[in-house]
Design a protein around this nucleic acid. Structure first.
Length: 232
DNA sequence: GACCAGGCACATC
DNA sequence: GATGTGCATGGT
């Protein structure tokens, strides 16, 4: 694979200069991170926020709250985040897992080693690689690089990796070239998502689209060409 | 009205 | 192992 470590550091620096620190994960507790990670699957974050607000107002945004609320009722509260029936099942599956493996305690879960915890999370219905890694990184501070659809687009469209690269290959690509620091991985992933949100949306995309061609000069050129796409 | 969004499980070949 | 499909709301 092309792209030496310095290139990935340069991309990070450019994104940080362009967008500033992103302050992820937008949550107050590990429980809220986990709920958000499940609710945001293939869903715009703005819709997830509505669902989170609903849960908070009903005092359900806690392990105990999610445990006591029946699944059908839970689905109603998270409706704005889409796929609400599926996601209600997923949240319940996580609680059942937590109860089964860690006596319902996130603190006990936090004592588990990263590789073992990752394997266990992947065994939970509704938790795939990205959700598991988001939980590891953002709820438990583990140095695990989170890969999402934007990340794959960036590394393949810039020729860092071949098309069709798998999740773990993209993850290794970053982790082998960057220091194993949770803070860095957190900021890097958030910046990639920010870039994705702010990328030229109409198709065909213009040549300055920062997900096409060379990311570094194109970020600023795209913002100049399309100020209307700047995300608040 | 079409397309997209911070995926995942499941069926089928 | 690769590919296709269902899941569902809300913004553009």
């Amino acid at each position: 694979m092309s792209a030496p470590p310095a290139t990935l550091r340069r991309v990070h620096r450019t994104l940080l200069d362009a967008f500033g620190p992103q302050g992820w994960w937008p949550a107050e507790t590990p429980c809220e991170v986990i709920v958000g990670a499940i609710l945001t699957q293939n869903t715009a974050w703005a819709n997830v926020e509505r669902a989170i607000v609903n849960l908070k107002q009903a005092r359900l945004l806690s392990i105990a709250g999610l445990r006591r609320i029946p699944r059908h009722a839970l689905a109603r509260f998270i409706k704005p985040s889409g796929y609400f029936n599926q996601k209600a099942i997923k949240l319940k599956a996580f609680i059942a897992f937590l109860d089964r493996e860690y006596h319902g305690s996130l603190k006990m879960m936090a004592r588990e080693g990263t590789p073992a915890l990752r394997q266990k999370l992947l065994g939970v219905h509704g938790i795939g690689p990205e959700t598991a890694d988001s939980i590891l990184l953002d709820a438990f501070g583990r140095p695990v690089f989170v890969v999402d659809a934007y990340t794959v687009r960036i590394v393949t469209r810039h020729g860092f990796m071949r098309g069709g690269a798998k999740y773990h290959e993209v993850q290794e690509f970053f982790m082998e070239r960057l220091p194993r620091r949770a803070k860095l991985y957190n900021e890097y992933h958030a910046l990639i998502v920010r870039l994705g949100k702010e990328w030229c949306r109409p198709k065909p995309r213009c040549g300055a689209c920062p997900l096409n061609g060379d990311i570094l000069p194109n970020i600023l050129r795209c913002r100049q060409a399309h100020p209307e796409y700047t995300v608040k």
